[in-house]
Design a protein around this nucleic acid. Structure first.
Lengths: 111, 111
DNA sequence: CTCCATGCTTACAAAAAGGTGAGTACCTGA
DNA sequence: TCAGGTACTCACCTTTTTGTAAGCATGGAG
């Protein structure tokens, strides 16, 4: 979050879901709650630091819920809230667009 | 563009439309072609450097078309390609989501 | 004791993104 | 000759984001 006022809805949404990992984490949690380690494996390429950092942020936004089980070894499960689900739903068309044009995108010149 | 392979469509899409400005520029060009100066005024807060940088990138991705009119003073018009339009369409639900939850988002704690 | 698994946490560094302010080239009209 | 309008271009700097590698706490198993 960087600002309080937005010029349009898209502006606001990008601010919430922006960055390299948030959309992917949301996506990974779409079907079922996952624990930290599972999430780490599900989101390929993410480091522990990044994963936690993003999860904490998303928790503070009310997108994900964090459930701690007091066990040893520790177990923590992350799941989507209603709000998180609604955002995920809004991301579906974008995901489909990416899927459809994947080859084109992969062939794009690099920045 | 940072990578060539993606774990899912959303991953690819975010790579294309990522960053602070691209989605907003796309949005601004939705209705009609705009010239550089108009675009600058339409996308509030963007600097000339950023605007050009993003436009060049989007042009290289095939999202926008750049038309130069050889006049003095110079005139350059930017418009969406078919590809750009399709991406914009995929962004509509996200924009609506942002619109709907704008107040919630604006009230979010800052990172 | 020591090791293991899990879920973090911290310090440090690199890379990417974004911002600022000035300058360029062109022709036109005063 | 000189300012004006348009669309850039450049050099330099700050901020933000991301990555790397290591360390910590817990209690049960061996």
């Amino acid at each position: 979050m960087k600002k309080r006022t937005y010029s349009c809805g898209l502006d606001a949404a990008v601010d919430v879901v922006g960055g390299k990992w948030k959309a992917l984490i949301l996506w990974a949690l779409h079907h079922e709650p996952l624990r930290f380690g599972e999430l780490r494996r599900a989101v390929s390429g993410v480091s522990e630091k990044m994963l936690i950092q993003q999860l904490r942020e998303m928790e503070s936004y009310g997108l994900v819920h964090r459930e701690v089980y007091h066990q040893v070894p520790p177990k923590v499960e992350y799941s989507l809230t209603e709000f998180g689900h609604s955002l995920n739903t809004a991301l579906v068309p974008l995901g489909e667009w990416g899927e459809k044009h994947m080859e084109t995108i992969e062939a794009l010149p690099r920045g």
